[in-house]
Write a protein that binds this DNA or RNA. Structure first.
Lengths: 226, 226
DNA sequence: TATTGATCGATACACTGTATCGACGGCGTC
DNA sequence: GACGCCGTCGATACAGTGTATCGATCAATA
């Protein structure tokens, strides 16, 4: 089509100036919708109706973008509670919930050092609520809870994806992986595992998470009171 | 140089036929030496003196290669011990040690479902050694320990990398990050964190890991005996 | 108004995972 | 022993990635 008959582009109302916040929000929207691997600087820039290189005025590297995304999610994690146990419990549950809302979060937590303001703020809230008791105890306790949550959430999301990938419901999952597991169990090389899978408890994800967390908090409490 | 004076390539003794095991071993060597991001199918194929497409006869996708690598590492994780507590403890320590030897392992664990033979075998060993006690208790216990280890190891490796990136020793780390932390603490927004960093315990990585693990095992033991 | 300085983004580069498909070589059959 | 087939191999290609470069453009200053 000739230039003459092609209409001019509608001069956009600038759509608001670019900013780190707008960039990160758009990136999170992308990741929530299509997964972390859908977040490329080109797609992100396109979503913001901008050239890819514009972004490098706000971030120096893609990893920095990911760091900003992680820190933004930490803003949703605000532990609360009266005693230290309630606080740690709420920290764990809030983190888990955030990972459910942003599955890509599970791929990132623990993977890079986190020193962003929101991450520091939730750390601050936890430490402050622990009530000044012996730092030699509270610091490892917080670290342990964090570690547990990271691992638990990761596995949970991984499982959820696997289920979703093979089919919508549990029936189809058993149909997809069942044959393989049946065959490998039929070799007799994993008798104990076989009994677990057949006779073991079928806890849902919530229960499993809470049970593990309770183990840990019980152990911490024992040291606290002694 | 002219063809005539250029020596023929030494006709290699075929170097052994290709196989999944050889491929995975080479990939692990690459990852150990230069990090996970250095493992590309092209570099891997080059290391095996083969065209890149050859590999697709042995794996269907790069993710499958990563799965194989993870399972190969699990072969080094063979928990042992007399009672259940010793077994879980040894499982945790062995996993940690594996992650120290193969830092990329920390990036991968918990990230994809693991059903390879070596992973199953170490699971089998653990379950078998738990001594037939109540499955409703042992299954969540194992899950919890696994979750803790995944998270703890991830954070540990992350920290190690951060230290290495900023300089060889701790002195340089404080010099690199100190200013930033000083400034943010000076804002007064994170008073509790500031005290922790200044007055808190400076545990080494071994201690931290063991302490958290002990918390968890204590909590599990309490349920076991009640 | 002229000049400068910052801002912007098109183009380019090196690299990735993977699909395609023509060439080759060993093997079974006549 | 010659021929044809079929499986194996890998060069080439494609679409996409993160990022460096650098000429054009635009605003503010002299």
């Amino acid at each position: 089509m000739l230039v003459w008959e092609r209409p001019e582009p509608p001069d956009r109302p600038v759509l608001g100036r670019l900013s780190r916040e707008r960039i990160v929000r758009a990136a999170i929207r992308l990741a929530d919708a299509d997964g972390l691997e859908a977040v490329s600087l080109r797609k992100l820039a396109a979503a913001l109706e901008v050239g890819p290189m514009r972004l490098y005025g706000y971030i120096a590297t893609k990893d920095e973008l990911l760091d900003l995304m992680v820190d933004a999610v930490h803003a949703e994690i605000r532990p609360a509670g009266d005693d230290w146990r309630a606080v740690l419990h709420s920290l764990a549950q809030a983190t888990r919930q955030a990972a459910h809302q942003h599955e890509w979060f599970a791929d990132l937590i623990g993977g890079r050092p986190q020193l962003g303001p929101n991450t520091l703020a939730s750390g601050e809230a936890v430490v402050a609520a622990m009530g000044g008791v012996d730092l030699d105890l509270t610091v490892p306790a917080i670290a342990a809870v964090n570690a547990y949550v990271i691992g638990a959430v990761r596995r949970e999301i991984t499982e959820r994806r696997a289920e979703r990938a093979t089919g919508v419901d549990k029936k189809q999952w058993q149909a997809a992986l069942g044959p393989y597991l049946e065959r490998t169990f039929a070799t007799g090389r994993f008798p104990a595992l076989a009994t677990v899978v057949r006779d073991g408890p079928h806890l849902d994800a919530d229960q499993t998470f809470r049970t593990g967390l309770d183990f840990l908090l019980d152990g911490i409490e024992a040291r606290f009171s002694s």
